[in-house]
Design a protein around this nucleic acid. Sequence first.
DNA 1: CCGCGATGTTTGAAGCCTAAAGCATTCCGG
DNA 2: CCGGAATGCTTTAGGCTTCAAACATCGCGG
Lengths: 173, 173
Amino acid sequence: MDDLAAPPAVDAETALADVPAGHKDELRLWLRLLACTTLIEGCIRRRLREQFDTTLPRFDMLAQLERAPPEGLTLGELSRRMMVSNGNITGLAARLEAEGLVERRAMQGDRRAQMLRLTLRGRREFRRQSAVHEAWVAELFQDLSAADRAALFRLLGRAKASVRAALDREEAP
Amino acid sequence: MDDLAAPPAVDAETALADVPAGHKDELRLWLRLLACTTLIEGCIRRRLREQFDTTLPRFDMLAQLERAPPEGLTLGELSRRMMVSNGNITGLAARLEAEGLVERRAMQGDRRAQMLRLTLRGRREFRRQSAVHEAWVAELFQDLSAADRAALFRLLGRAKASVRAALDREEAP
DNA sequence: CCGCGATGTTTGAAGCCTAAAGCATTCCGG
DNA sequence: CCGGAATGCTTTAGGCTTCAAACATCGCGG
């Protein structure tokens, strides 16, 4: 911190770019993947806060409900789709309900479950946000050629398949 | 949830795979990137908890300190490298210190700052964890060919550059 | 029709994370 | 030397997240 002329931007992935050796290239790949995601996610979170005074989890929940059937989704289904815990959904839904963006409705035939769906206000608000959100993402990737984007998309698909396979092996030995 | 024969694994990325059209392919790319990272991160968090009773942030902090100069790092430098806020570092360092894995040492010449470094126990513990951690990552990517891994690594580098460029444009209009 | 395992949701405790405000110290220009 | 800007860290308030335990209800086998 003292005699380095001009310390350039150093993040976790850059800092770990020169680990000894081994089968460490998988590790480097993971760190770069993580750094990339963190960078984008941080930008989107910040803009959601600055421009819409909201958060990514709130936005995600609205997004799930918007593309759901008109009768809505149960909290459990929402939990699965958002890949977060049940307990998490409870609080998130409560906050969005308090803001008048979603509404609960008892599910007839099963008194345990309840449907959650967008209010009119929620739908309008989400549409307003999502158009801008989509432009942000496009902007962040704009220096990547269409070919690179396509290749990246395809490779990420394979990576995901590899990870899922490993997870399946784990629970079914 | 009732008449679907065998609902396959549905996550955010899969669920949004059929959005209308537009320049939505950037959005799909982002969602896939996010899904991929979330999947891996969740697996690693879970295993860190199950096998070492620790968390990813703790592990990250130890990792940063392990590859730091022997005198350690200041909290501020740690904050920059881990890409998290200052306030976050305070609590994290306090917890690790309470567990005897790191130690603070006043920095001579600047009474504001303090160096944080691994204790002997912290170093041993981290080495134990990191060897296993590296194997986990290799396992998760094992179905990806070396060529695919290399290509993915390269493309992620370009993606990161694109994002950084967009962020630079943002703060210097 | 009764009990009991499965399913849907909530609660509680703990940790992570941020932004913003505050405190202490250092640095620097006048 | 002195005052203010800059820097390093902590605190505070609030939200997100998880796991595990608790509750409520459903569905089914006996």
